[in-house]
Design a protein around this nucleic acid. Structure first.
Length: 919
RNA sequence: GCCCGAGUGGCGGAAUGGUAGACGCGCUGGACUCAAAAUCCUGUGUCCUAACAGACGUGUGGGUUCGAUUCCCACCUCGGGCACCA
């Protein structure tokens, strides 16, 4: 019987499905382990070989943990709401549900062929009403919560109302928007509408006017992480800033905890760093500057991290969008300011980014008073100050801030250096080092001492206070789209009102067309009778990250219609032990999920405050494109090695026509009509193609479909090969060339069990050498899998097979099969069965590692000799140290050491020196 | 501009202070075969040499060390992230 992977894989996949081999239940008698893949968005293109890389790794780890006795939760589902299906629907009229369903079926089929050990009974789809019921439910909880800074947790709004009734707005310390202070009496006198407006400033899910990234091309707003370089990540359409009323999540309230939590989880440093940058903590202080506007006095609060430079403030700057602008503009400057604001508004986000270093601004007419010196400085307005960060106003210190410096140079403002010996004639001195000058009470201090000293002074004199700012913004949660979760909100007398829980799920209505309405309303405005008890329902839908923020919790208890997750299920599975996925979610999904989870934690719904304990980013698999070279003006193609002698055009050629860089000439002619009569200039009788590593894409003809690999080599080879390509976390090109090597390995493995049709496994006792090979592999595999070094494990298997030679002993081969099963489960099952086991190898135990059996015959340690010198001696374990030293002394001529400073390495076996290397 | 990460044969990559290049691909020669495929064996960093031997060799230049791909400093190149965040 030859290794017939086709039938073997079909047989075992059917068997796993029929027997429910991977169906998982809570089991308090075994330790749990939760292995999760980032669930895919089912696109129309299907999977290419890059997609399963992470899934294969997680599957290996899951199977390994099962062998180690863990109760493993390893689920899969689909992130099924999203833009592409909707765009397709707009173009074709095809309902997104239909295309999504079709794509999911395709994905499932492709995944099943690879032999993953998912528990499919736990599958979730974000577009399923039974699923999005809980997305909507979480939203309602956020709507009904506020963030208590004092207790550092979300609390129910009812407690907030009670506090207002007791002591007005001063009674709480909350993360909130701009609220005019009010007393308890005032609160009680507010109308329903006024109360609603005030509470909205406190809710964790709230509605508010904000500058959003508006993408006209997609007809919707986008979150910051959905925009890159002023273009939408999906579609690449220009994005502009626009003020709109939107649902938002108060993620910023959690900034400190999101930052602090990073220290307690096992993610890569680079990923943590990305999140730290995104959260962007900076410590400084807020200082109040009195400002004079035509004799009128008002307070302007600024934020600075460089309180030490306050003596060098020579002007102030407001963000154009700041509320302070109208207040601080004097009548005579009004026209100029209006003109400038119009100019700024006209600019798109893209232009702002492109023109980062062009300096623009306008003088407001007001003057600020430096609280330390009493000096008056002009107040300017410029787009280089951002409304959304700090207070939207800054003190400018041109000598020690490059942006302020450029501004001062452009508008001829004063520059006062504050650090001894610095030269500010050409550029600012931004470094935080040196001795302070021109700075009153700070003179003589080092910058590092001056910063805290200045802050302390400011606080002591009531000029301001210490303050920590974060860059992290609240998440915009509305999308003007159809294919997403509807908001469980209706407008009663214009007041946003939550639906009662019993009304969930609020199902997505059928509509005739998926486009926005003619008057610019979201598609849901087309729905007939989109009302609740006669009141209009919200017409925007939730963004893509809504459904993916808590899906890992739903897998724990996927069919529960009474709760997001039963406390017992949550208490058992707790959180994800290993999460594998792409790095592209670093500042999107992975922030939102952590936020969402912490919110649920505050409410006591989940028991862990971090959702993902360990996270691995798998690298991308790039395509390896092949090229042919057409001589300009002809239909003649010249082989790569000879192309420099001609003037040629490089043409992508479909990689299915190329094997080992050699072009299939007949296949090429048949590929496209225009190549039918192609001529070739060959080298050594062959046409050699050029190649390059590029993104895997249809247009470059370099897409490799895993189905084809499964047809030609089998799923086990695909799995092994993807792991063998290189370290999991690294990006690497797919190159089918090397795949024969791992395929050959599996065939060799098979032949240890079968000689033709004859099963040749014997019950003979293994030799120590054979035991050593086995146990070395056990140790290596254990260590490597735990450190996610799967490529070296595959190599170790090949080495073991080389070392084992012609061993057909059951005592070696059975454990070897168990070791192989996480990587190549189908062949392992087949051989396991052939060895007489009735139960799936999934339920076998990982062989016990005995380091003594794996140990080398020789051991290495240093030996001192002649005072200064030390020998590194590798010797048989049976030899004592004294014997080695004696052996070395006994054969000095063999040692031929060269004297002072030289090190000698000796390899000794009992009785004699066999190798003596002088380094 | 700032912050990470990486540079090793023809190729993918091993080795984190101790014989650099494991393992695989490719290539060389051979066995089996009428032949091919498959399989097995042999060799394969560079230079020099008939061979033995030898010299050089992990992006570049320094340093620490008896010893550095590995640790430290500077630089170069590539990849990724952030980017008017005061």
């Amino acid at each position: 019987m030859a290794y017939d992977f086709k039938n073997i894989e079909k047989k075992w996949q059917a068997r796993w499905a029929a027997e429910g081999t991977f169906v998982t239940r809570e089991d308090a008698s075994r330790p749990k382990f939760y292995v999760l893949d980032m669930f895919p968005y089912p696109s129309g293109a299907g999977l290419h070989v890059g997609h399963p890389l992470g899934y294969i790794a997680s599957d290996i780890y899951s199977r390994y943990k099962r062998l180690k006795g863990f109760n493993v939760l390893h689920p899969m589902g689909y992130d099924a709401f999203g833009l592409p299906a909707e765009q397709y629907a707009i173009q074709t009229g095809q309902h997104p549900e239909v295309t999504t369903e079709k794509n999911i079926a395709r994905y499932r089929q492709q995944m099943d062929r690879i032999g993953f050990s998912y528990d499919w009974t736990r599958e979730v789809r974000t577009c399923d009403p039974d699923y999005y019921k809980w997305t909507q439910w979480a939203f309602l909880k956020m709507f009904d919560s506020w963030y208590d800074n004092a207790r550092n947790a979300a609390r129910p709004v009812s407690e907030l109302v009670a506090a207002f009734e007791q002591g007005g707005s001063a009674a709480v310390n909350a993360a909130c928007g701009d609220v005019k202070p009010f007393t308890a009496a005032e609160w009680k006198a507010f109308s329903d509408k006024e109360k609603s407006d005030v509470l909205m400033q406190y809710r964790i899910a709230y509605q508010g006017e904000t500058a959003v990234n508006w993408c006209a091309g997609l007809g919707t707003v986008l979150a910051n992480d959905e925009v890159k370089d002023g273009l939408s990540v999906r579609g690449g359409f220009p994005v502009e800033q626009k003020k709109m009323k939107q649902w938002q999540l108060r993620v910023s309230a959690y900034a400190a905890r999101l930052l602090e939590g990073l220290d307690r989880i096992d993610w890569t440093d680079s990923l943590k760093e990305m999140q730290r940058n995104w959260i962007g903590k900076s410590t400084g202080c807020e200082v109040v500057f009195k400002c004079l506007t035509d004799g009128q006095e008002s307070d302007v609060t600024i934020f600075t991290t460089r309180a030490d430079t306050m003596f060098g403030v020579t002007f102030m700057v407001l963000a154009p969008e700041s509320d302070l602008v109208p207040r601080l503009t004097t009548p005579d400057r009004k026209e100029a300011v209006e003109e400038y604001l119009a100019y700024v508004r006209k600019k798109t986000e893209r232009e702002r980014i492109a023109q980062t270093h062009t300096v623009t601004g306008v003088f407001s007419g007001s003057y600020g008073i430096n609280p330390l010196t009493g000096e008056q400085v002009p107040v300017w307005i410029s787009e280089y100050v951002l409304a959304g960060y700090g207070t939207g106003a800054i003190m400018a210190v041109p000598a020690h801030d490059s942006r302020d410096y450029a501004f001062a140079k452009k508008f001829g403002l004063k520059i006062v250096p504050l650090i001894e010996g610095c030269d500010v004639s050409e550029e600012s001195f931004d470094a935080k080092e040196g001795r302070m000058i021109n700075s009153g009470f700070l003179n003589g201090l080092d910058v590092k001492e001056a910063i805290p000293a200045a802050i302390e002074y400011v606080e002591r004199h009531g000029l301001g206070h210490r303050k920590v700012n974060y860059r992290l913004r609240d998440a915009i949660f509305s999308r003007q789209r159809y294919w997403g979760e509807p908001f469980p909100i209706y407008y009663k007398d214009g007041i946003p009102t939550p639906l009662p829980e019993e009304a969930l799920p609020l199902r997505l209505p059928e509509i005739s067309e998926f486009k926005p309405t003619e008057d610019g309303q979201p598609p849901l405005a087309r729905a007939k009778d989109w009302t609740y008890e006669g009141w209009p329902l919200e017409t925007s839908t939730m963004p893509g990250f809504a459904g993916s923020s808590a899906y890992y919790l739903r897998y724990m208890d996927p069919h529960n219609d009474k709760a997001l997750v039963r406390p017992e299920a949550d208490g058992y599975w707790r959180n994800v032990d290993l999460y594998i996925g792409g790095t592209e979610h670093a500042t999107g999904h992975l922030i939102y999920s952590r936020f969402w989870n912490k919110f649920l934690y505050d409410l006591g719904i989940v028991c862990e405050d971090e959702p993902f304990r360990k996270l691995i980013n798998q690298g991308m698999i790039q395509g390896r494109s092949s090229f042919v070279y057409r001589i300009v003006g002809t239909n003649t193609f010249v082989s790569c090695g000879l192309k420099d002698a001609y003037e040629t055009t490089e043409i992508h050629v479909d990689i299915s026509l190329v094997r080992g860089d050699r072009l299939d000439l007949e296949g090429f002619k048949a590929w496209r009509p225009e190549f039918a009569d192609a001529q070739f200039v060959l080298e050594n009788g062959e046409y050699i193609c050029g190649w390059a590593v590029e993104k895997m894409s249809k247009s470059m003809f370099n897409v490799v479909n895993p189905d084809n690999i499964c047809d030609d080599y089998g799923a086990d080879t695909l799995r092994l090969y993807e792991m063998f390509l290189g370290p999991l976390e690294q990006s690497k090109p797919w190159d089918t060339k090397g795949i024969d090597g791992v395929n050959r390995f599996l065939k060799r493995f098979w032949r240890l069990f079968y000689d033709g049709d004859r099963f040749i496994v014997t019950d003979e006792a293994p030799t120590p050498a054979e035991c050593k090979v086995l146990h070395k592999l056990i140790g290596k595999e254990q260590a490597d899998i735990e450190s996610f070094s799967f490529n070296t494990t595959v190599s170790a298997f090949m080495i073991a097979l080389n070392d084992l030679g012609d061993c057909h002993k059951r005592a070696i081969l059975e454990p070897l099969t168990v070791l192989l099963s996480p990587f190549a489960p189908h062949i392992a099952e087949e051989l396991w069965e052939a060895c007489g086991h009735a139960e799936s190898i999934t339920f076998a135990r990982f062989p016990e590692f005995d380091p003594a059996l794996a140990a080398d015959d020789t051991v290495t340690y240093p030996v001192s000799f002649n005072g200064k010198m030390r020998f590194t001696v590798e010797l048989a374990k049976s030899l004592s140290r004294e014997e080695v030293e004696a052996a070395v002394r006994a054969e000095p001529q063999t040692a031929k050491y060269v004297g002072g400073g030289q090190i000698v390495k000796v390899v000794v076996v009992p009785g004699k020196i066999v190798n003596f290397v002088v380094k």
